[in-house]
C-alpha cells in the first residue's frame, strides 16, 4: 500500500473537500434541523456549502476573525459544486430526496431517514457537530427556509465581509 501512487493520493487528500466528510456533515445538518420529509425540506442546498465549516470548527460566528470568515466564504463557492455532485450520489443511494426549487433555480433537499443506518445518528460521535448546528440556529433562525442571500447577509455581510454572489 505504501507505494508511490498512494503517497501521491495521500498528499492530494483534502480533508474539507472529501465526499465522505461532506456527506456526514450534510446528513447531520439535515437530521438536526429535522429536514426528514418533503414538508420539512431544507430549502436551497447551496446554503450547506456555507454552513459546513461552522459545523466543523464552531458554531459561534463571533469567534471568527474577518480573514477567517472571508476565507470560509470563498471556499464555500467551491464546495457548492462538490455538494451538488454529492446530492446526485446521495439521491442515487436514496439517502436523500430532492425537489426543484424553481424560485431560486436550485434544489431543496430532505433526509430519507429510514434508508440510513440507525447507528449513524450516534449522538456521541457527532456531538460536536450537533452542538455547532444548534449554535448556528441561534444566530440564523429559520435556517432551513432561509434564502441563500439572507444567510450570507447574516453570516458574512453583517460582519463586514465583502460578498459577491447572490
Amino acid at each position: 500500500m505504501k507505494n508511490k501512487s498512494f503517497a501521491r493520493k495521500r498528499m492530494m487528500f483534502i480533508q474539507k473537500e472529501d465526499y465522505n466528510f461532506l456527506t456526514y456533515n450534510l446528513i447531520i445538518l439535515l437530521h438536526t434541523l429535522k429536514c426528514v420529509s418533503p414538508e420539512k425540506k431544507f430549502k436551497d442546498f447551496r446554503k450547506v456549502a456555507y454552513l459546513i465549516e461552522f459545523i466543523n470548527s464552531g458554531g459561534d460566528i463571533t469567534k471568527y476573525s474577518r480573514e477567517e470568515l472571508a476565507s470560509i466564504y470563498s471556499k464555500a463557492q467551491l464546495k457548492k459544486q462538490l455538494i451538488s455532485h454529492l446530492l446526485v450520489v446521495l439521491r442515487n443511494h436514496n439517502f436523500i430526496d430532492v425537489s426543484i426549487n424553481s424560485v431560486n433555480k436550485s434544489f431543496d433537499i430532505w433526509l430519507n431517514i429510514e434508508e440510513l443506518p440507525a447507528d449513524f445518528f450516534d449522538k456521541k460521535l457527532f456531538k460536536k457537530e450537533i452542538e455547532n448546528i444548534n449554535l448556528i440556529k441561534k444566530q440564523a433562525s429559520h435556517l432551513s427556509v432561509l434564502t441563500v442571500k439572507t444567510l450570507v447577509d447574516r453570516l458574512f455581510t453583517s460582519n463586514n465581509i465583502l460578498t459577491w454572489e447572490i
Binding site: 456527506t23 456526514y24 443506518p117 460521535l125
Partner: peptide, 19 residues
Amino acid sequence: KTIFTHEKLNLFSMEVCPF
C-alpha cells in the same frame, strides 16, 4: 468520522459509478 461515514454508507467505490 469520514471513515465511519464511508463504512456505513459506502457511497463511493471504484466498482460502481456514484452517479
